[in-house]
Nucleic acid binder design. Structure first.
Lengths: 136, 136
DNA sequence: ATATTAAAGACTTTATTTATCTATAATAAT
DNA sequence: ATTATTATAGATAAATAAAGTCTTTAATAT
């Protein structure tokens, strides 16, 4: 069990977009170049973020991607849900519903992690103008 | 990102073994039958639990598997580490070491989950003799 | 009308997980 | 000793999921 590479990219994309929020739209090409990823592949990931309403996209010249949700409000969990999907990490293979006590415990553990990541905002890690933090 | 089926099995195996701890060794055959899994496949999972010193195995007639670690001490995390491996859920694809601030946050989140699962014992969920809990 | 940009669909490749088969090793019972 | 019972190991196959590519379509600014 590992986070997908897509989540890795997605988190970094959001941070990068926060850091460049004042620069207008960022094109797929620009992002793909900067992170050294294939454009079409990155496109799929960004589209997931668009569908999750975290960012927005505009076609045509001068188009590209820009933040949609208020940057201070974008949490790690927002991004993770967009790329990993909703749905629990553990699902009992022997019993339906939540009758499995093991599953209940696993869900509670996941919940702790989830709550933490829902409170943590990617904003905190971005290096923006007035020395608000630092990162990559 | 999901827990593997192997982890699912492994957790249930331990609970089952706790519930039948007084019945001597449980053979692969018995376990495979009870859980409706192929024996050789289950064997691989049980071997992982043996290597993690959670259970022990003995060959030959009347052999099989039995708990090795004190049942009250076997945590969810013990089992998960055995089947999922150690190693973090998130590893930054752009920076080495722990220089990535995103990774640090992700690790902290994982830590919360891990601590919880290291405290929770599978024993609590087993239905053993003197009404100590209930489950499957 | 043209250039620029994103989205969608089909598909391929790679990696991981799940599962099987066969052979080997260990031990108890006879 | 031989046989039956039991686990382990190795090779490999099948299934699933993730990562990545190619091509077409749609939208928009100039």
């Amino acid at each position: 069990m590992k986070y997908t590479k897509a989540t890795n990219y997605a988190l970094h994309m959001i941070v990068y977009m926060i850091e460049h929020a004042q620069s207008g739209n960022l094109s797929l090409h620009t992002l793909a170049d900067h992170f050294n990823v294939s454009a079409t592949y990155l496109s799929k990931i960004l589209t997931q973020l668009v569908k999750a309403d975290l960012i927005e996209s505009t076609s045509g010249a001068n188009g590209g991607y820009a933040l949609r949700k208020k940057m201070e409000d974008i949490s790690y969990m927002d991004v993770i849900k967009a790329t990993e999907g909703t749905g629990s990490l553990f699902e009992c293979k022997f019993q339906e519903g939540s009758k499995c006590l093991i599953q209940n415990v696993m869900a509670e553990a996941e919940n702790l992690m989830e709550t933490y990541l829902r409170d943590k905002k990617l904003y905190e890690v971005a290096k923006i103008q007035i020395g608000k933090g630092k990162s990559f």
